[in-house]
């Protein structure tokens, strides 16, 4: 609830102050709480929405959110349906070849395995992951049989139904899922660090826009507001990995 009020406050401030500014369309998946999701009122909310609105305010841009399927999120950026991606997308070399990233707004975080018991075989069994994620790439190379799904939700459902022995995904996504499963799911003690953190994806040719967002992200790192946002209870919680002093270098 608090999120909604804050988010709509940010939108209002935006509309009042920057009515004539350039409109930037931000693409997101809307199925990955707490990064981005559609709440029960049918609005796009989450950490990235609040962050994105704040970044737009700092960069003097008017932003609007567009929901897009994960599978086609990069092609639709390239064909110009929106101008930037904020969808919990980790910065990887493969993606750097086709799009550009801003500096990360979430530090490199852990990916975890979740299964029905703690002793499942994650090296030789069937492991579920979302299509086109760094986790899917990692599973494919780990020797396990990769079972891909279009949405994060389905990867967890596959473990519950026994289709896969474990799911491999961002730890921040899995922690609340495990906590609320009533003991049905357990987190395996096998965290892996993947990718270069989460950043905003833009078209290669949009250097000017990338510069604006880069500056806005840096300014939020410098005044500590980004760390505060990450550590908020409804997003990643006080125990989340934050930038800390490393983020303040060069301020």
């Amino acid at each position: 609830m608090k999120t909604k009020i804050l988010a709509s406050g940010a939108v209002l401030a935006l509309m009042a102050g920057m009515a004539s500014a350039q409109t930037v369309r931000l693409g997101t998946e809307g199925a990955y709480p707490p990064y981005n999701f559609i709440n029960d009122a049918g609005e796009i909310v989450g950490f990235e929405v609040e962050l994105g609105n704040e970044l737009c305010k700092r960069a003097g841009l008017t932003c609007e959110w567009v929901q897009n399927d994960w599978d086609s999120i990069i092609p639709n950026l390239q064909s110009g349906n929106y101008d930037a991606i904020m969808a919990g997308m980790s910065i990887t070399d493969e993606r750097e070849e086709v799009i550009d990233f801003t500096q990360n707004y979430i530090p490199p975080a852990s990916s975890s395995y979740v299964g029905l018991t703690a002793d499942v075989d994650i090296k030789g069994g069937v492991v579920a992951a979302q299509t086109g994620t760094i986790q899917a790439g990692y599973v494919a190379e780990s020797g396990a049989t990769l079972l891909e799904f279009a949405t994060p939700e389905e990867t967890v459902a596959a473990v519950k139904s026994g289709e896969a022995v474990a799911v491999f995904a961002d730890k921040d996504y899995l922690v609340p899922v495990v906590a609320e499963s009533g003991g049905e799911l357990v987190m395996l003690d096998a965290d892996v660090q993947l990718g270069g953190g989460v950043g905003m994806g833009l078209r290669d040719s949009d250097d000017e826009l990338r510069g604006k967002f880069d500056a806005a992200i840096k300014s939020m790192k410098c005044d500590g507001s980004l760390d505060a946002l990450i550590a908020r209870a409804e997003y990643f919680g006080p125990e989340a990995v934050v930038f800390g002093d490393a983020g303040k270098e060069g301020c």
């Binding site: 609830m1 709480p33 709440n39 029960d40 459902a157 609340p176 899922v177 906590a179 409804e234």
Partner: peptide, 14 residues
């Protein structure tokens, strides 16, 4: 699919 999927406490109607 979206409404039926299990919802954590991040949602108003888990």
């Amino acid at each position: 699919r979206e409404l039926g999927g299990s919802k954590t406490q991040a949602y108003e109607y888990p």
